[in-house]
Amino acid sequence: MNIFKYRPLVMVSSVFLGMLLTDARAELKVGLVLEKSGKDDKSFNASAYQGLKRAEKELGVMTKTVEAPDNSAYESLQRAFAEKKFDLIVAIGFHQLEAVKKNAERFPDQKFLLVDEDAKKPNVRSVMFEEHEGSYLVGALAAMHAPSGKVGFIGGMDVPLIRRFQMGYEAGVKKVNPKAQLIVNYLGVTGEAWNNPPKAKEQALDQFQRGADVIYVAAGNSGMGVFDAAEAKKKLAIGVDSNQNWIKPGYVLSSMMKRVDDSVFETVKMMKDGKFTPGLVRVGLKSKGVDYALDQHNDKLVTADDRKKLEAIRADIISGKIKVPDYYISMKKK
């Protein structure tokens, strides 16, 4: 008998055998679905990706990451993970809400983690960040570094989430300098707003031209343009979501960090320990879910005096003495 005659059969069966064996290892599988701006946005999605990589290294889970080419792809990407029996599917960004709702119903045995929205399903853990609290802190910091009394804000897509950043920031600015003037720009009303650094740079140059000393930017990939402008004009910018201080050391005053990485890591850890809990979790200053970034890159910019004041404000927010206005709540009132 010539074994080579059966080569295709042998190959196919060994592939199946291999698949069976990998499944039999019963490793925890985590799938991450990122937004269009992708794992290298140095911001929101990058933070989620880092959290997952940390989980892979420290907890020994198997991970896979995909990026959605557009907003209509979320549902099929999540479903692809679910059909391949991934144990936990992590969906990053409010755009994925509807897709998570549908897939969570369709695959009730698998778990989902949704960041930035509340899916209200029994197998979904939803994490929402109190962005306004962190933005309040960096707003106060911005006002301390704005002798002219003018500060700027540049938002990506004009959506309630980013308005929430702006509202908290504005309140923080006014807390330190009640007479301060805020210049606001949004990049657009479509998804392209997250990926347009040339336009963000023009907006930032314009704001600096009009006298702003510090600009806080919440615009994903477009934020790079604001850092370029800050460097060109020798002014300051404040980054968002990830710690972005390293991008232009000396010109990035600080970053308002959303610890998406921690949320992802902790949820994977829960899965690993069999302690996954569904439902909405809100993380803010108190639970260190949001914070301002301090490292070797902005060590000289943020003075000891600034830090003392910021810590006092932080304590007041946590104790409830300072009420940070929340755009989501003000929106409901309207």
């Binding site: 269009k36 701006s37 992708g38 392209e192 990926n195 347009n196 650094p197 040339p198 336009k199 740079k201 023009e202 990939n221 477009s222 790079m224 343009g225 370029d228």
Partner: peptide, 17 residues
């Protein structure tokens, strides 16, 4: 000019229409 002059890196789909 978009990536070397108007900004400082290439970003996905940066031609933006």
């Amino acid at each position: 000019t978009l990536s070397t002059y108007l900004s400082s890196s290439f970003i996905r789909n940066m031609s933006a229409g």
